[in-house]
Design a binder for these strands. Structure first.
Lengths: 252, 252
DNA sequence: GGACCTCGTTGACTTTTATCAATGCAAATT
DNA sequence: AATTTGCATTGATAAAAGTCAACGAGGTCC
């Protein structure tokens, strides 16, 4: 049984979907982390409802005016940046409980695109209101800062990956990261469906899609994973981890 | 005449250096941006003094407990991340007016090292106090968020560079970025001293030092720049820019 | 002032990844 | 059920960057 099932077909964008942090099983992963019941109620009344997006549709695009950040309720997103000359860099993949849109705070204009990779739902969090509330609720303010800082730290990890790792290390790191995040959400750490194409993985990892495909095949040949198109099963997590620390792997 | 001159020799770390945003000519680049005189005075009284660091000394290290963020008053820093197996990724170079240390907010522990690449001075901004003050001064709160968001956007730019550009494009982007930042601080956009080694540039750009050196040499052969060790003069900024948009460069 | 030492440059060669191209697979459409 | 279409795999070859090694320049320390 797979952890990740597609949503039913739903309207393109449905504003006004009722949402409440206090009822949400993601609250410990998401913005309301650490809030008291009373404060969570105040956050509830600020959340501008939810939106449903069908696969392939944009939550926002580079150039859009920034008004809100978004919390992923369900589904899967990618963010990417485009240059004038058509280059495309995937900057992240976001799943339930993760926050999208913080790129827009700095200039009040979004600098990247956010696309649903499967039918998804988000909570809309108007940023001005969030700032007002967070100046009253210290733990909310602090947690917002933590969420932004965590994004910075995550980005440093991606830089490390892009700057110092070879193709197979990058892919191993990518799979282990997904595994850990699925696990934190109660899904299997060993078996999951990739929502993104080889090309999107390649863009994220700074590789061409053929290189990604070959690395998958080699992992399978080596008995580390089993791949069938987008379905991944990690057969040997510990050995996959040793790919990331080649020195230890050889010495140990 | 070079814009960037080494500081005199000074004690290793000197806490208690008197600093005041209201007197600082970097205030429009830095955290107090947009504050009224009154509010700037309140920020002044929060700043925990300044620190001087000699070249090669650490402002903080990965693993240090997080207490403050820092604003660079003068000098030049690099930040880098290390993995267990000894890999080292430079994640940024910081100059006057830029903020350091936001990586530590998320876990209350710094995740990277910050090293002075020349004798430098920073202002120490205790973060808990900054949060308290920013819940009272809305424009300070908002500007802090902008600074953090700008860091996220900057990181996306580095990902783009590492993920999609070839060696010479990366170096061109790097030089143009330095040029623009020196220019914003009133220094020459065309002539400056690099504070970092080829190896540090390479680490930042995901290249080996020899590749960086060869790219410099080729730029010089092509009449784009003039290089003499750490002294750089950009001879043809427009043409250097065309290296970043190869499609346009060929079509135009 | 000379020796040392770090950093930078350059060359020859190797490794890795990209590119180009063909084929296969599977889900979506009619 | 057949066709289309997008995605994935695989192979052959080319290009880019890395590695190893030697040498040179500049600054620092006695």
């Amino acid at each position: 049984m797979h952890a990740n099932v597609k949503q039913n077909v739903i309207p393109l964008i449905t504003p006004g979907l009722k949402v409440a942090c206090s009822q949400c099983n993601l609250r410990e992963l998401c913005l309301p982390f650490g809030l008291s019941d009373v404060d969570m109620g105040r956050l509830d009344s600020l959340i501008g409802g939810g939106r449903k997006l069908k696969r392939g549709h944009y939550l926002y695009r580079a150039g859009d005016p920034f008004e809100s950040i978004f919390a992923v309720r369900s589904g899967f997103f990618k963010t990417d940046v485009l240059t004038e000359d058509g280059r495309d860099q995937v900057t992240g993949f976001q799943m339930a409980g993760e926050i999208l849109g913080m790129d827009g705070i700095s200039t009040e204009i979004h600098t990247c695109n956010a696309v649903a990779l499967e039918d998804s739902e988000v909570c809309l969090i108007p940023f001005t209101e969030l700032e007002m509330l967070s100046s009253e609720i210290h733990s909310l303010q602090h947690h917002l800062h933590k969420v932004m800082s965590r994004e910075i730290v995550r980005d440093h990890g991606v830089m490390m990956l892009l700057g110092t790792m070879r193709a197979e290390e990058r892919l191993a790191a990518f799979l282990l990261n997904l595994s850990q995040r699925f696990s934190a959400r109660g899904y299997s750490p060993a078996e999951f469906h990739l929502r993104m194409t080889r090309e999107e993985i390649g863009s994220y990892l700074g590789l061409k899609l053929e290189t990604v495909s070959r690395a998958f095949s080699r992992f399978q040949d080596d008995g580390l994973i089993s791949v069938q198109q987008k379905h991944i099963r990690i057969v040997d997590i510990p050995r996959l981890k040793t790919l990331l620390t080649p020195a230890d792997g050889r010495i140990g």
